[in-house]
């Protein structure tokens, strides 16, 4: 009896091993689907155009060069300007978004705040109904006169009700004893918020800042609506410009002296992606919690 069971077990684990191997191999191939495109991108960005023409695109460049990057970042290069605007927009959006979001989330986490429920109903309503693309565009550009100003992109994306609710839920889970003690000691609620609540909320602040920053870095629609590529370029506008110009009218570069367009394009992709990859380990540390605050029970 025992023997038979043992035998059965061994047989089963042999089958398991095959399933495991197949699973591992499939996941390896799947991972390649996510990684290989970027290997090619990096390879092209360091390749000479002659090598691309001769050998095609290879995993490792046949002829290495940093010409594309040198060209891209040469003095007066548009990408430097685009980098500047993108960093400025991203930093300002993140800071302002924390200011607005935290300022709403903390009071709304207080259950005895008068009109709290009313305001929360309004927040929900606003998540469902907004002006929509056209009215918002007209109000921002015609009424606030923010066309071609980076403030249009910053302000329209510096608040998200979703983030506010996530933060509010975090605040309401904090222990209230210290806050009450400080209140009795005569500290006002702004001081309590700044010197007691905020230091306890570092994880949620880090998570939301990273998400807002990455979202704004990647934002293409906002700059497309409000900004002019020639006046205030952002990285995404610049990248889209450089890719579509080659799609539509062939090369915009003078073929005799300019660096290879394809490698310049891919160098731009690398330059746009690199900051995201740099913050990626931090993102990864936090985002599981960020996704799961939605409240889905397992």
């Amino acid at each position: 009896m025992v023997k038979a069971k043992k035998g059965y077990r061994i047989k089963r684990s042999a089958g398991d091993k095959i399933v495991d191997v197949v699973n591992y191999v499939l996941l390896f191939l799947l991972s390649l689907c996510f990684v290989l495109p970027f290997v090619y991108v990096i390879s092209i960005s360091f390749s000479t155009e002659d090598a691309i023409g001769l050998y095609g695109i290879t995993f490792v460049p046949r002829e290495w060069t940093v010409e594309a990057y040198a060209y891209l970042f040469s003095e007066g290069g548009v990408i430097i300007k685009a980098y500047g605007y993108t960093v400025l927009i991203t930093v300002l959006t993140t800071v302002i978004s924390l200011f607005i979001t935290g300022g709403l989330a903390y009071p709304l986490s207080k259950i005895d705040l008068p009109f709290r429920k009313t305001f929360m109903y309004y927040v929900l309503f606003a998540m469902l109904f907004g002006g929509g693309m056209i009215p918002t565009y007209l109000v921002v550009t015609k009424l606030y006169m923010l066309k071609n100003s980076i403030w249009s992109v910053i302000l329209t994306s510096s608040y998200s009700a979703w983030n506010m609710i996530v933060m509010k839920n975090f605040f309401s889970r904090l222990p209230h004893d210290i806050e009450e003690a400080a209140l009795i000691d005569g500290a006002n609620e702004i001081r309590i918020f700044i010197s007691i609540v905020l230091p306890l909320s570092k994880p949620i602040i880090a998570t939301l800042s990273l998400f807002v920053a990455v979202g704004q870095w990647n934002n293409w629609f906002g700059p497309l609506l409000y900004l002019d590529n020639r006046v205030t370029p952002t990285l995404m506008l610049f990248l889209r410009g450089i890719i579509s110009s080659s799609l539509n009218i062939g090369s915009q570069f003078d073929s005799s002296e300019a660096p290879p367009p394809q490698s310049v394009q891919m160098a731009t992709v690398v330059a746009c992606t690199l900051p995201i990859v740099c913050v990626y380990p931090f993102l990864q540390k936090y985002f599981a919690s960020g996704v799961l605050v939605g409240g889905v029970k397992g």
Binding site: G131, P135, L138, Y159, E189
Partner: peptide, 29 residues
């Protein structure tokens, strides 16, 4: 009692007025 909390909410309320309520009114277009 909560006057300071309302003070904290001012930027957020302002955002809602400027970037939600006024564009929402804009649907009259």
């Amino acid at each position: 009692r909560h006057k300071y909390l309302y003070l904290l909410m001012i930027p957020g309320v302002l955002w809602y007025v400027l970037f939600h309520l006024i564009p929402l009114y804009g649907i009259v277009i």
